[in-house]
Design a protein around this nucleic acid. Structure first.
Lengths: 169, 169
DNA sequence: CATGGGATTGCGACTCTGTCTCAATTGAGA
DNA sequence: TCTCAATTGAGACAGAGTCGCAATCCCATG
């Protein structure tokens, strides 16, 4: 249910003397209709095809409000721009992203969270937020056993060199 | 020394039948001249002020080569675009970023790295890379002595910590 | 030394995201 | 009904990065 998050958004608006207009409501509904990581322009398209007259500027402005209200998360996934995801109260997670199919999987690992705090303290940082993405090939895209294996569409080279994972051992 | 990385770059170019032109060498030198997290356009400015005639397109194209060769890292720090950092063989680290002054601090925590692998395995992922940023207020920017506590900010709170305003000497 | 051709470059046009300005509109309360 | 702030849509604008293309460079040959 989105009741709780809608209430939070309402309260947020009220507190700042803002209004819950039909455009804002429509965008809220759209974002909360599915759990996914969506781009601003796609929301525009979706609402437009539902006969909602809404402008790009309003989409961006409203998304910003939702983010500030804390009910929507703004992520950097993919090559350009942001993606948005609905958030539920008390929810926190990080992301695993498939380089092949783009699928986004959420994970939460309390031990990592704890170690982050430790690292921050070690450097005298007051931690406000973090962004933790891991990229690779998901279960579905991975060639099982010896299947097909035809990943490299790259004509020129044996590109797939893992860049930032350090050789551990 | 950059000798090692230059050799890697050379080899990479050679392997693909590409040339180490004076523009590419100049950009390499510039990136490796200091350890920092620099934007493409700043490299352009720097090289131009050094009388190197070089175009924006070449900067971007060459940076891409450096990244593919594995000697330069491409990061998303800050609100827009990318930053680049030189990488040394076997080096891996993640970043702590100060929301106040923009300072970037590197950290490496082997226990987090290990847990990442664990998470990936749990989800059937083959991990290729990751991106882990923690944001907050650094030691220097933090109000000293009595913390005045006002960081926490919750529930529709006025979170707004200034995001930009970079140092730059 | 001249030639040929792929690699490289610079330029400028272009795309993509997102922001901003501003006039018109809305809507809640006086 | 009137007033005035909040809201909206349209389109101009901005920043970052990409692309196409003609000119140029480089280098191996002839």
């Amino acid at each position: 249910m989105n009741r709780r998050e809608l209430a939070i958004f309402r309260k947020y608006l009220e507190r700042r003397g803002l209004k819950l207009t039909s455009e804002r409501q429509a965008l809220f509904d759209e974002v909360f209709s599915k759990h996914e990581h969506v781009e601003a322009d796609e929301l525009l398209v979706r609402l437009r095809t539902k006969h909602k007259k809404i402008s790009r500027a309003t989409i961006y402005r409203t998304l910003e409000l939702l983010v500030e209200a804390g009910v929507v998360g703004k992520l950097r996934i993919g090559e350009a721009g942001y993606r948005y995801e609905r958030l539920h109260a008390g929810d926190h997670h990080d992301h695993l992203i498939c380089d092949q199919c783009g699928r986004v999987i959420e994970f939460f690992e309390p031990r990592i969270e704890a170690l982050q705090d430790e690292v921050a303290v070690r450097h005298g940082f007051v931690l406000l937020s973090h962004n933790h993405q891991m990229r690779g090939i998901c279960k579905r895209c991975r060639p099982r056993s010896k299947g097909s294996g035809s990943f490299g569409a790259e004509a020129a080279g044996p590109v797939p060199v893992p860049i930032s994972s350090r050789p551990r051992g």
